[in-house]
Amino acid sequence: MKGTSHLAIGTAIGAAAAAHYPFSPKSAVLYLAVSSFSALSADLDGPSMLSSRIGKLSHTIRGLLLWSGFIATSILIYQYFSLGAVYPEYTAASLALFMLGLLTREGMIRNTLITVIGGGFIYAAFLWQMYWLGGLGLFIAIAPWLKHRGMTHTVWAVILWGMIGQGLENQLQLPGIMTVATLGYLSHLIADTLTPSGVKWLYPIYKKPFKLR
């Protein structure tokens, strides 16, 4: 299912929560933000709306690696033939840059960038003693390297996300945040269960996908 559909469902959950719980502009914004983010988070295991800008950045980084390596190598070749000068260290570094850009996939760069962001959350969690943020950071750091519609699309991930939501609710002292986070994440899995590929809700215990056509 498309990210826009997941986002629409998450937004609807946040709007319902804002209407159900005591209303204030701040709480409404929080409900909408948490539910929308939760509804998209399961797809951090692949290209998604959440990682689209990072995907563009990874494309740029790969291009920079290729061109910087190519230009540096060309300069060194020119110096060798025109001046007879040889710089082994610079030559090795230039070739390494070019080969890194040539061999590294954009997906790997994107995953690495997302993992770095997750690592930043983990660091902030220890710095500010916000352990729920550490759980979120760990999820973000690991998810990109997992198989698509694998562990992030399971009932275990829903439970983990609910625990993160509970920590956030305790931090904000705002009732319903855990419920909104859990329902937002759960909505993603239910929506994907309606697609032909289905969802492996009990993976890795039961590896066959559940489908509701």
Rank of each mutant, 00 (worst) to 15 (best):
Gly119Asp: 05
His20Phe: 03
Phe37Glu: 01
Lys211Thr: 10
Pro144Gln: 09
Ser24Tyr: 12
Leu66Cys: 03
Trp161Ile: 05
Thr91Ile: 13
Ala96Tyr: 07
Leu30Gln: 14
Ile164His: 10
Gly120Ala: 15
Ala19Thr: 03
His59Trp: 10
Lys208Tyr: 11
Tyr90Ala: 15
Leu40Arg: 12
Gly3Phe: 09
His59Tyr: 10
Met108His: 14
Pro25Glu: 03
Ala181Trp: 05
Leu76Gln: 01
Ile71Leu: 13
Leu103Met: 11
Ile71Ser: 06
Val34Leu: 01
Phe98Val: 08
Leu97Ala: 14
His6Cys: 02
Ala191Lys: 02
Leu212Val: 10
Ser35Lys: 13
Ala39Phe: 06
Ser94Val: 03
Gln79Ile: 07
Ala16Pro: 03
Ala16Thr: 00
Asn111Pro: 08
Ala42Lys: 00
Thr179Phe: 06
Ile142Thr: 12
Ile117Ser: 03
Ser24Leu: 12
Met130Gly: 00
Thr91Trp: 15
Ile159His: 00
Gly3Pro: 08
Trp67Cys: 04
Ile13Tyr: 00
Gly134Asn: 08
Ala19Arg: 08
Ala39Gln: 04
Thr4His: 10
Asn111Trp: 02
Leu64Ile: 15
Gly14Cys: 03
Leu44Trp: 06
Tyr31Met: 15
Ala143Lys: 05
Ala181Cys: 08
Ile54Gln: 03
Ile190Glu: 00
Trp128Leu: 04
Gly150His: 03
Val86Phe: 15
Leu44Cys: 12
Trp132Asn: 02
Phe121Pro: 09
Val158Pro: 02
Leu113Cys: 04
Leu44Glu: 04
Leu83Gln: 14
Gly55Asp: 08
Gly10Lys: 06
Ile142Glu: 06
Tyr123Glu: 09
Tyr31Asn: 10
Ile164Leu: 10
Ala15His: 01
Thr91His: 08
Leu136Asn: 11
Thr179His: 07
Gly167Val: 01
Met99Val: 09
Tyr90Met: 13
Arg110Thr: 11
Ile117Tyr: 07
Ser38Asp: 12
Lys207Gln: 09
Phe70Arg: 07
Ile77Gln: 14
Phe126Leu: 10
Leu146Thr: 07
Ile117Gln: 05
Ile109Asp: 02
Met49Leu: 14
Met108Ile: 10
Ile159Asp: 02
Tyr31Val: 13
Pro88Tyr: 15
Val29Cys: 11
His188Asp: 01
Phe70Gln: 11
Gly165Cys: 12
Ser82Thr: 13
His59Ala: 12
His148Val: 05
Phe126Gln: 02
Leu83Asp: 15
Arg149Ala: 06
Gly119Leu: 13
Gly55Pro: 05
Trp156Thr: 07
Arg213Gln: 07
Leu100Lys: 00
Ala33Leu: 15
Pro209Lys: 06
Gly198Thr: 08
Leu183Phe: 05
Met178Phe: 10
Ser5Asn: 09
Met178Gly: 00
Leu50Asp: 00
Val34Lys: 03
Ala157His: 01
Leu57Lys: 08
Ala16Asp: 00
Pro25Lys: 11
Trp161Cys: 00
Phe37Tyr: 13
His20Asp: 06
Gly198Ala: 03
Tyr21Gly: 01
Asn170Tyr: 06
Asn111Gly: 11
Phe23Trp: 15
Ile142Val: 14
Lys200Leu: 02
Leu57Tyr: 04
Ile140Val: 14
Asp45Lys: 02
Met1Ala: 15
Ala181Val: 08
Thr112Gln: 02
